[in-house]
Design a protein around this nucleic acid. Sequence first.
DNA 1: CTGAAAATTTGCTGATCACGCAATAATTGC
DNA 2: GCAATTATTGCGTGATCAGCAAATTTTCAG
Lengths: 203, 203
Amino acid sequence: MSGLRERKKQATRDALMTAALRLALARGLENVRVEDIAAEAGVSPRTYNNYFASKYEAITARHTDRVRASVAELRARPPGEPFWEAMTEAMVRPWAQHAGTTDTPPSPELLASIRMLNDEPALRAEALRVAFAADGELAAAVGERTGTDPDRDPYPRLVAVTAIAAVQTGVAHWLRTDPPVPLVPLLRDCLRALAAGLPDPSR
Amino acid sequence: MSGLRERKKQATRDALMTAALRLALARGLENVRVEDIAAEAGVSPRTYNNYFASKYEAITARHTDRVRASVAELRARPPGEPFWEAMTEAMVRPWAQHAGTTDTPPSPELLASIRMLNDEPALRAEALRVAFAADGELAAAVGERTGTDPDRDPYPRLVAVTAIAAVQTGVAHWLRTDPPVPLVPLLRDCLRALAAGLPDPSR
DNA sequence: CTGAAAATTTGCTGATCACGCAATAATTGC
DNA sequence: GCAATTATTGCGTGATCAGCAAATTTTCAG
């Protein structure tokens, strides 16, 4: 499966993602046309649409990959682990890899890209779309772990979508923290609050 | 504020919403052009875009209104009421009005429209977009009620987005129930589970 | 090594959408 | 009534996205 063809495809995909992100950060999202992205990546505009169905998909692709990584991570957690512990790790780890830990702060460009993802309505919508398009897979993984059937019991989907939503919110809040705080503990806090029933803090 | 002008605008908006929904249900979403919707509503295609920014917005407009109604409802709940009770009512009531109670089942057309909203990716994305675009307002209302500042504390946003997500999931599950069950109790169950910390049902 | 088969890239084309702009028509408030 | 505000409309433009078929590249069996 690692033939020349596969590698080239992956390289093209990467090039398109990188080009799209770079141009959008440099010029602003609406000043970038599909044509520009394709040119930057060295392929024809038509080829862009063979890889991505919309102008925004290339930019949010990394985000998509993160959700998928969470699904894989949840499936890979040790079977004996308490559910919410596994869930928390599964949701947090894909972010930890990108957004660094306490001692390795995130790069300014990564920060800018995440910020753009949250600020630009079109990207926000696209990110939501893909995140909640993957909710089925995540719910299936939750179902496997908790012995519930996503088609008969709302529980697994409920866990999946609220966890996704909690992470989104955590990241959005993280972008607003001043002075900056480490992302990972913040996300853990959000998921812990979720698993604690979001108790009213005013009482 | 109830001049002829206002009433006409509202009428046009309603006509566009109704026309869009009717045509989409009759022909399938992708067989409807903006031109058709405008014609059905008796206005020019250009006018359609004065009211709605995209082809899909007219169809999801009712959904948008529901989220806004939840915000208003939350603000209107009695001050002494426990938070999650108020939140649950606020989220459920706008649905209760449309989807009926045990004795008054929802109309087939309403069911079909909600189903389309969940099945058509483009509409699902648009519905998500508007739902989460309103999360700021809902979070603000939560913040007021719980004495937390959405800008300093992730709590209110966390509550807002997870509650929205929970309702979405509840509705989606409702559409799959066979034999049908009443929507409102199902939504209450979902929100109760959320407020209980989504405990792992397998233990 | 070679040539046929399979997959990918590309250019072309057409349908559609969304918006800026300016002219026109309707409503409002004085 | 009349002037000012606001809504509607037509026209033109730029851009997105997908279908199709030709050309190119990769694969793989013989």
